[in-house]
């Protein structure tokens, strides 16, 4: 079969100790038997390793941070699109999703397809409104509370027992054992990601995760559960293993079918010793460990691209249990002239 030629742009090329999903996503796409893709990397920072991985990424461009606003971003993408004729764009950072969702119509006008959650799906799964989400869709969630000011810290003890989790709107989560620590983490998080801060009840159990893909009509296109085997000091998976956990898949299907989830997602759940499952967080995109799904038999990156192109995708229900991923680091070698080109011209 002749492979279809397409151009795919992706962000999240920061394959560092706290990796973004861009590079694993691209690996998945590269292994597609249906596409012969040209890959365009979109980078925010000049040392995102993906930029320099020329075997994976054909060309990289710097793009403005989401905080500069969608106008500025669109102008940049318009420029890139003139050169590259992008077919599909897959954003991989939480913080940029809002901007891309708001811009998806304009991207479509440029001929660029995306496959993102709707604004409503995106908003209602926010950490700050997780209790409402749980109620609406009948999913167990830990208690949580949104706080705006340090003055609210002393009263937290009336609601939850210490330790509690202190989380940012987009990223970062810390376990705090005292009000002092809550204050410290609050300042740390808010200086980077702004207010509010989310305080979450600490549920004791094992963290389990699912990478999944919804077709926007309530069908689960693919889902692979995983448990982290070893965690880095940043709380990221160093190694993980696919699980045969039908309960977890049922919950995933329930969430996708009730919310009619559109696009990639990562569910973070806690399985308690009593075998209860608590939903901790929904990340509205494929996670950095998405390549495990490819290894276990479900090429979710490829499926996501097909959905974006409007192609029909048959749901995948099988995967290989006991597939492991072990993350490793690797030193790329390149000349300073590459860094120079990227930094001064914004493209490489």
């Amino acid at each position: 079969m002749e492979k279809k030629k397409i151009t795919i742009a992706a962000t999240g090329l920061n394959n560092i100790d706290n990796p973004g999903p861009g590079v694993p996503f691209i690996r998945g796409v590269r292994e597609s038997k249906e596409f012969d893709s040209r890959i365009i990397g979109l980078a925010y920072e000049n040392l995102e390793p993906g930029i320099y991985m020329h075997n994976l990424i054909d060309k990289s461009y710097q793009i403005p941070y989401p905080s500069s606003g969608s106008d500025v971003l669109l102008r940049r993408i318009e420029y890139i699109n003139k050169i590259e004729k992008i077919d599909v764009l897959i954003p991989n950072f939480d913080a940029e999703l809002y901007t891309f969702m708001k811009s998806s119509d304009k991207l479509k006008e440029m001929g660029i397809s995306t496959f993102l959650p709707t604004l409503e799906q995106f908003e209602e799964r926010h950490k700050s409104v997780l209790p409402e989400f749980g109620k609406k869709y009948d999913i167990k969630v830990p208690g949580s509370k949104t706080i705006f000011s340090e003055r609210e810290i002393p009263d937290l003890v009336n609601e939850y027992k210490y330790p509690m989790l202190v989380k940012g709107k987009y990223y970062d989560a810390y376990v705090a054992y005292t009000p002092e620590q809550v204050r410290m983490y609050m300042n740390k998080i808010s200086s980077k990601w702004g207010l509010p801060i989310i305080i979450q009840e600490f549920v004791v159990g094992t963290e389990v995760n699912v990478v999944a893909l919804g077709d926007g009509n309530g069908i689960t296109i693919g889902a692979v559960p995983m448990r982290k085997q070893y965690i880095t000091d940043k709380g990221k998976a160093w190694a993980g293993i696919t699980l045969d956990d039908t309960n977890l898949l049922e919950i995933t299907n329930k969430i996708i079918s009730k919310t009619k989830w559109r696009g990639g997602m990562e569910l973070e759940m806690i399985k308690t010793n009593e075998d209860d499952y608590y939903l901790i967080e929904i990340n509205p995109r494929l996670p950095a460990w998405v390549y495990l799904s490819v290894g276990a038999g479900q090429n979710l990156p490829e499926a996501l691209v097909k959905l974006a192109l409007g192609e029909k995708v048959e749901p995948m229900t099988k995967y290989k249990n006991g597939t492991l991923f072990i993350r490793y680091s690797y030193d790329l070698i390149c000349d300073i002239s590459e860094f120079e080109k990227l930094t001064l011209n914004g493209e490489l």
Partner: peptide, 8 residues
């Protein structure tokens, strides 16, 4: 890491 927007 904190290079400015796109290129300079």
């Amino acid at each position: 890491g904190i290079s400015n927007k796109f290129g300079s």
